[in-house]
Design a protein around this nucleic acid. Sequence first.
DNA 1: CTGAAAGCGCTAACAC
DNA 2: GTGTTAGCGCTTTCAG
Lengths: 339, 339
Amino acid sequence: MAVTIKDIARESGVSVATVSRICGNYGYASEEARGKVEKTCKKLGYTPNAIAKSMVKKQTKTIGLVVTDMHNEFYIKIIEEVEKNADACGYSIIFANSDESIQKEMKAIKTLVERQVDGILLVPVGQCAPGDATKKKDAANGHIRELIRLGIPVVFIDRYLEGVDVDAVLIENERVAHASACRLIDMGNRDICLVMPDQEISTILERKAGFLKALEDRGLEIGPERVLRCLYTSDSAFSLVTEFLARHAVDAFFALDYQMTLGVLMAIANSEGTWEKEIQVMGFDSLGNYGKLYPGKVISIIQPVAAMGKMAFELLIERIRNKGRIGVDGKRKCIRLSF
Amino acid sequence: MAVTIKDIARESGVSVATVSRICGNYGYASEEARGKVEKTCKKLGYTPNAIAKSMVKKQTKTIGLVVTDMHNEFYIKIIEEVEKNADACGYSIIFANSDESIQKEMKAIKTLVERQVDGILLVPVGQCAPGDATKKKDAANGHIRELIRLGIPVVFIDRYLEGVDVDAVLIENERVAHASACRLIDMGNRDICLVMPDQEISTILERKAGFLKALEDRGLEIGPERVLRCLYTSDSAFSLVTEFLARHAVDAFFALDYQMTLGVLMAIANSEGTWEKEIQVMGFDSLGNYGKLYPGKVISIIQPVAAMGKMAFELLIERIRNKGRIGVDGKRKCIRLSF
DNA sequence: CTGAAAGCGCTAACAC
DNA sequence: GTGTTAGCGCTTTCAG
């Protein structure tokens, strides 16, 4: 049997209240009592029971963190940053991977709610489709709405969901994509191929819009065969680009996220004769150290991931502190980082 | 206020005991009661409180997971696998990163204990030094011993600690390194350079021993300048190998883990004139998809990480189930996977 | 089959 | 300053 506050109280000849005050160090306590209690705590090897504490304080000092993909270094970085920030504030992370599956996300969130997390940091799977699919999407996002109804603070990271009013920390995807694509064009690349996952995810849609606008601004057109849509994995991008390269020549590739960038590089590195053509690659997300493995021409659009993790955590903490109220102005915050 | 079992009881005109039986579905309950309770649960949007449940059941259905490095894909895979297996069994993961710091590890473990995790999966930082440093190491590993004293099941993954009796899931490092190095030599490589972090970690020591034994078995010698010791990062390995390549020529590199393998490849890819020399690289851990980015000669020693994660989790669960007793034979298990 | 009641370990009034 | 006590939401005997 683990030693409890009661044991400490008995052993030191004081009441549980006194022990609680001393161990939680709040309220008054005589030096004498303090000394005795601290000694017995050490002697008996007392470990406070956070569960019991949570029970009465109605806060667990834990937050849920759900990401969609563990093969994506961007999300790994997010996990790392969130854990670091949380730890510094005495929060623990209950971690879950939704693996781009809405079912897994729903299950994860249900578990987190049951475990009484103080708040949730979420990269939402849910796809924000425009148009007639709205009703279906609404149903699919019911679990997020439920969270809001329950008053559990949630902050989205990286992606947002159309029609769901939630705080979020995002990137200025359209602007950044636009600026980057302009730069790519202004470097002299005319024939550019877009590589993207065929999914209705906010980041992808926004980046795509920015890219297309850049083409338009520069008076360029893009044929449908130059918009490569694949599954949301680097392998899929690899296959598609490899196939494409066997048939076509291009000046450059524009890849909309980590997996796409990786797939493009893999394809170029492995396609006969393409290496020396020096195709320019521009893509979202750093490939970490791996960039050094690829000697070709690559420009990475590196998101400020550390800042994103920090801001998301801090925003969540703010919401947790003012539980119920949503900021001073009563509005959700949607932080858009530019860079 | 969240809706509780009490609300459900009142609303459905039964006692809390009945509601508890029905929601936890154990014990008897009439169809009538069941129907009423289930309806009100739905109506009021009842979410069971796992914290309260933990309080009385004295088990939280959570396990702690602590890894040492989030820039190492091997550990990321471990996280992924553990989460997947845990989720399937109704366990949640409280995650922490010790970042190779013994202080952070101690803090993480303290937190996990306070949070009453049912068990802990740990890649221990602690370095298993042979010889006179023993006493210092013992002190450093006191927090692990404390865990055992408290009866909290722990399973080490990847590394073990000398003198601390804990279940572990490891690789047959020495044998695998030996076999791999033999193969490397038998391919015709005579002048081989070893790249390793300068740390007393079990994996590294064992792999090094296997490598050296292979040289000995084949009647080869290795000069001290061909044993490259660096910090435990790919950048450090990169610098050291780059410097080495500027001065020496070798047939092959043997890298003792993920970070080392990555550093070696980076160095070769970026060193003037080394590319075409076709230096053979053999190293522990897959570089995931990145392998495709490097067109040189690489042989990866790929650890069965999925099996490791699964076995570690299952061993932990077994220990949790038989809380107190340590297996049928009263002995710790040290599973050594070969491949 | 169902209900009353006793806690799990801790905090927080409220009295002394 | 310190102790008593009433819960937090739930499970689990033990009666009925």
